[in-house]
Design a protein around this nucleic acid. Structure first.
Lengths: 143, 143
DNA sequence: GTAATAAAAGTATTTAAATACTTTTATTTA
DNA sequence: TAAATAAAAGTATTTAAATACTTTTATTAC
């Protein structure tokens, strides 16, 4: 569904969100550790997210990544679009390059429902929403 | 969601199914052409499907691949399992190695619904079902 | 203003999936 | 039985994503 990098990005942002109240900034290494993902992959993706305005970053001593109130309100759709693009939400279930209601593949409608369900999930859940269960200890970013 | 190879496999089997009544056999090249997929990829995948008993094959002159009545009754789930395995139906939406109701990721339940929707689609739709719209010209295997 | 810190940026390597190529085996037909 | 055909099988290459490494830039603190 989503690339490894994109799933890591969502976890990274939820991690920053769950630490929002601390007012601290977090380094690449620490974030990677907390979400059990590759440090280099996390470094690159944090850069992209910062450039896209989905998180904030600060260079130098006591620098790192953090998130602000407005960013907490964003749906995870914003992260998916920034990292993987919008293809996930449009691609044909059987890989037809041009699959549409007018020229459908044999599973067009059923797969569309699945895809729409996923899009719904991504557009309805905000970072803030997903931080709640993490902060209350009923959901995790690491196994 | 599914690998390129797996999507090609489903299309290949639907193609064979849609040609079922002809009683003919079809070569790798022809199948690849009809579903607009790479010839080599299709060759490999047809071998796998034949070995898994999801389609039939015959060597030599007038040989090729074909499908029999029983195989038409199989759900496309059988193809997915043979090519991509069962991971698609179990993997965590955020990539946690062990994500469960007891130790869930923040999108556990919502993603589970999406995944279950897809599993439903795969286990309910048989080759036969998906050949119908293709044979009546209202669905396509190629754009 | 110098040293230390940490992200930004650019480049290189690794890995797995996809694609390509080659050889072998089974089957048919003449 | 020999030639032709087509899948089976094995190996090699390519490609894109992931991971690794290096250099640059900005910021802080002394």
């Amino acid at each position: 569904m989503l690339s490894v990098t994109c799933k890591a990005a969502i976890k990274a942002v939820i991690y920053l969100g769950s630490m929002f109240k601390s007012g601290e900034k977090f380094g690449i290494r620490e974030i990677a550790d907390q979400i059990d993902e590759n440090e280099h992959t996390v470094g690159k993706l944090l850069q992209k997210l910062a450039k896209a305005g989905l998180i904030c970053s600060a260079k130098g001593p006591n620098g790192g990544f953090y998130i602000i109130e407005n960013q907490m309100k964003l749906p995870i759709l914003a992260i998916v679009e920034a990292i993987d693009g919008t293809d996930v939400f449009n691609q044909c279930g059987l890989g037809l390059h041009k699959c549409s209601a007018a020229h459908p593949c044999p599973i067009h409608n059923d797969f569309k429902s699945v895809r729409e369900g996923f899009r719904m999930l991504c557009s309805e859940k905000t970072i803030e929403d997903l931080c709640l269960p993490v902060n209350s200890g009923i959901a995790y970013l690491i196994s």
